[in-house]
Design a binder for these strands. Structure first.
Length: 380
DNA sequence: GTAATTTGACCTGC
DNA sequence: GCAGGTCAAATTAC
């Protein structure tokens, strides 16, 4: 109905577009490979990022002008032509990793602080700090980040958090502190565009739901999660998940406390989120220079780190290398998700509907449907 | 059998 | 007293 005349282009043009996307993927892959070496050469990094962005921007523009059916036809007509690329995707774990987590798409946006594309004027990254707000713009692949640093107090001691009812000398529950001496980080993330859109995106940690409550003035209940490893590793991390009142398809995630479970060899091998007062540049710097160290279990690809940080991750389970199913709640309902290879990427892109949305969102799907929300509404 | 989710009750801070 | 946060028994799923 809204197809423009421009979409009646010849398939060869579509072919070029497809190659363009593949080129972009390769460029990004190269960048990832050299990320560590270029950590102290921001200008080169910038140039590389710029090149990648241009490639994808061009591809995006072309896709916007073309009929989605053409690419499908192209793939069906010449499946072997791109077999090498697909094979590479299928056989190159690191590339798959990269595609999974949308490393570049996130990193690029963070680096460039680019304004949101036309039609998306809402700042996509917003980091608030106590005493002073920072507003950072960027078309982060599919997440809007709104971080709120808490009062900067200590993380509540695990034994305080979970001391149990029966441990008290009396029949009453032990006293719990709800003081704001906890680090809080609030962010909004869109619901997955694929799969179960009722579930917020995976963030690479395993969470166990321990409560849900109707919140006054909110249309949707708030779900409470704690780290699955809380008891085993005294990990104090918690998070709250709630839909936005005015946007059913956006979740507001509030992270409270930091994970300590990553220190364990069996716990998620993911570096903890950066200090909540870290600037964006610092975050990027850390991301760029993040390298596995012999003594650290944080041998996590940049993509995973970022995806974890911004809730974009669709991949790894909360147990890091352990295939815990990737479920938010520890994999009980975890699904093994096959992350899209190129064909899937095309499928995602073309089935996504809107032509005005950021193609990066589709190239690097922000989320899978592995989240567990599932809890029924609770009303007190 | 084990682990995660659900949900009513309880606790804390305002 | 109220609202938000947490506990833990019951339920559910694997």
């Amino acid at each position: 109905m809204f197809k423009s005349k421009a979409k009646q282009k010849h398939p060869e043009t579509m072919e070029e577009t497809f190659s363009l996307i593949l080129d972009g993927c390769k460029l990004a892959k190269d960048l990832e490979s050299n990320l560590g070496n270029l950590a102290n050469q921001p200008q080169i990094l910038y140039k590389s990022c710029d090149d990648i962005i241009k490639v994808f921007a061009t591809a995006k523009q072309r896709l916007n002008d073309q009929d989605p059916a053409l690419l499908s036809n192209l793939l069906a007509r010449e499946p072997l032509k791109y077999s090498s690329s697909q094979q590479q995707l299928q056989t190159d774990p690191s590339l798959q990793e990269w595609l999974k987590y949308g490393v570049i798409s996130q990193a690029m946006e963070m680096i460039q602080h680019q304004p949101v594309p036309a039609g998306k004027t809402t700042p996509l990254i917003e980091i608030n700090e106590m005493g002073g707000k920072k507003l950072l713009e960027g078309s982060l692949a599919s997440a809007r980040l709104k971080g709120i640093v808490g009062v900067g107090g200590e993380i509540q001691a695990p034994d305080v958090l979970d001391s149990g009812r029966g441990s008290s000398s009396s029949s009453q529950r032990p006293r719990r502190s709800r003081k704001d001496a906890e680090e809080k980080c609030t962010m909004t993330v869109p619901a997955p565009q694929m799969g179960n859109t009722d579930l917020p995106p995976e963030d690479n940690y395993t969470w166990r739901k321990y409560g849900q409550k109707e919140i006054l003035g909110s249309r949707y209940p708030r779900a409470y999660y704690r780290c699955t490893h809380q008891k085993m590793y005294n990990c104090p991390a918690k998070k709250q998940v709630q839909r936005l009142d005015n946007d059913f398809y956006t979740f507001e995630l509030t992270y409270i406390g930091q994970h300590t479970c990553h220190m364990s060899s069996t716990a998620p091998s993911i570096p903890p989120p950066p200090p909540l007062d870290m600037t964006q540049d610092q975050i990027m710097t850390q991301a760029m220079v993040t390298q596995p160290t012999p003594t650290s279990s944080s041998s996590v690809p940049l993509g995973r780190w970022l995806s974890m940080e911004f809730g974009l991750g669709s991949g790894g389970s909360g147990s890091g290398s352990a295939a815990a199913g990737g479920s938010t709640t520890g994999g009980r309902y975890g699904r093994d998700v096959d992350y899209p290879a190129v064909a899937d990427m095309a499928d995602v892109m073309f089935n996504s509907g809107s032509s005005s949305s950021n193609s990066m969102d589709f190239i690097f799907p922000c989320a899978d449907d592995k989240w567990e929300a599932g809890a029924g509404d609770k009303k007190n």
